[in-house]
Each structure stands twice: as structure tokens, then as C-alpha cells.
């Protein structure tokens, strides 16, 4: 029995280890903590393997466990995230469907080619600086390719909240990367020259 359980777990759950690790890395922001979180996630998943419905999204199930463990750790004070007030009134400027950054780059780099010039470490830093709610939504959608429904089920919020988090998270991230590009001269007054 135990051998069967282990075999099916290793067959269905273990192939998602790399994905869970990537997610854990974005949640914790540290390779050491991510490894610990992956181990905790798979141990917890193994113990709860009877509750997993075969044929359903195993990756989403593992991600849910991973995030819940992370949030519990965060409650214990191992990491402090910015608390976002999602009920805050919508700011007309920053919440406009027209991205304010578009007008900022319209004359020099309307297609956002500057994003390609930003070093990976800075991109990662900007992702990790997002509040957890936004970061999780952006990571699950833009990096893991999950649908709004999948993210809503995983995070246990309505689809409308997922969309709002994606909107705000992406805007914040773009703003941070834009500011970095301006500060470092990737985007500036002088016309860009292609390498």
C-alpha cells in the first residue's frame, strides 16, 4: 500500500518539483528558504496524498500547499511583505486603462524595448519587491501561464480580484523597471542605438 502511494506520488507530484521551486523562490526571495519550502510542500503533499483527486491539476494543488505554508511562515514573522489595501478607492490616474507609461515612452521607445535591456537581477528584484498578493498573481499568470480561473481557485479569491491584482502588479512592476531604466540611462533623452 505504502509502496503504491509512494510510487503514484513520485509519478504525479514529483515532476512538478522544478515549478514548485520556482514559485517558492518568488515567494521567499531566497534560494535556501525556497528549498526548505519545497521540502515542506512535498512532505505535506505526500501526507495528504489521499485527498488529492487523481487527474486534477496536481501542479495547482502543490502550489496551493506551497503558498499556504509560506503564508503561515510569514505570519510567524519570517518575512514582512507590504500590506495592500485592495479596497482602497481606485486612483483615476494609475488605474486608467491607458497605461501612463505609454505616454512616457511614446516618443522614444513606444514598444518598450528598454525592458529587454534590464539585467535579470534587477527584474527579479522588482518582482520580489511586489506585495505578495500582486506577486503571486503575476508569477502564476505571466510565468506559469495559469488561467484566471486557475489562479482564483489557487488563491481562493474571485476572478475579479485576480484581474485587479494582475493589473496593479503589472503596473507597479513596469513602473519600477521604467524608473530603473531611466536612472541607469537605458532610457534617456538621447536616442537609443541598437547594439
Amino acid at each position: 500500500m505504502d509502496a503504491d502511494k509512494r510510487a503514484s506520488f513520485e509519478r504525479e507530484a514529483l515532476p512538478h518539483m522544478d515549478a514548485v521551486y520556482r514559485f517558492a523562490l518568488r515567494l521567499t526571495g531566497s534560494a535556501d528558504q525556497a528549498q526548505d519550502l519545497v521540502q515542506d510542500t512535498f512532505l505535506r503533499a505526500f501526507r495528504s496524498w489521499d485527498q488529492y483527486t487523481p487527474g486534477t491539476q496536481c501542479k495547482s494543488w502543490l502550489f496551493t500547499i506551497c503558498r499556504n505554508l509560506y503564508l503561515r511562515q510569514r505570519e510567524r514573522g519570517q518575512r514582512h511583505d507590504e500590506i495592500v489595501d485592495e479596497n482602497a478607492p481606485r486612483d483615476q490616474g494609475s488605474e486608467s486603462p491607458v497605461n501612463p507609461l505609454w505616454s512616457a515612452v511614446e516618443g522614444t521607445d513606444p514598444e518598450g524595448e528598454f525592458f529587454a535591456s534590464i539585467v535579470d537581477a534587477e527584474v527579479l528584484k522588482a518582482i520580489d519587491a511586489l506585495p505578495e498578493e500582486y506577486r503571486t498573481a503575476v508569477v502564476l499568470s505571466d510565468l506559469e501561464g495559469m488561467s484566471y480561473d486557475e489562479i482564483a481557485a489557487l488563491v481562493d479569491v474571485p476572478v475579479g480580484t485576480v484581474k485587479s491584482r494582475l493589473f496593479r502588479g503589472r503596473r507597479r512592476l513596469q513602473q519600477a523597471l521604467y524608473e530603473y531604466a531611466v536612472e541607469t540611462g537605458v532610457l534617456g533623452a538621447s536616442p537609443r542605438t541598437d547594439e
Binding site: 521551486y21 505526500f46 518598450g112 529587454a116 503575476v138 513596469q174
Partner: peptide, 30 residues
């Protein structure tokens, strides 16, 4: 613009993989 942004996110995280020993360690734990 949005595609360029998303491509940058993908590129920055593309090389991230767990250390090779993690899987063996996990199998031992299981």
C-alpha cells in the same frame, strides 16, 4: 510594450532551477 515586458519577466526567471541534490534529498525524506 506588454509583450516586451512579459518577455523580460520570462527571461529573468528562465535559468532558475533547484540544485540537483534537492530531488534526491526529497526522495530520502519521503
Amino acid at each position: 510594450f506588454e509583450e516586451s515586458f512579459r518577455a523580460a519577466l520570462k527571461r529573468a526567471t528562465a535559468g532558475e532551477a533547484p540544485p540537483p541534490e534537492l530531488k534526491d534529498h526529497l526522495l530520502d525524506l519521503l
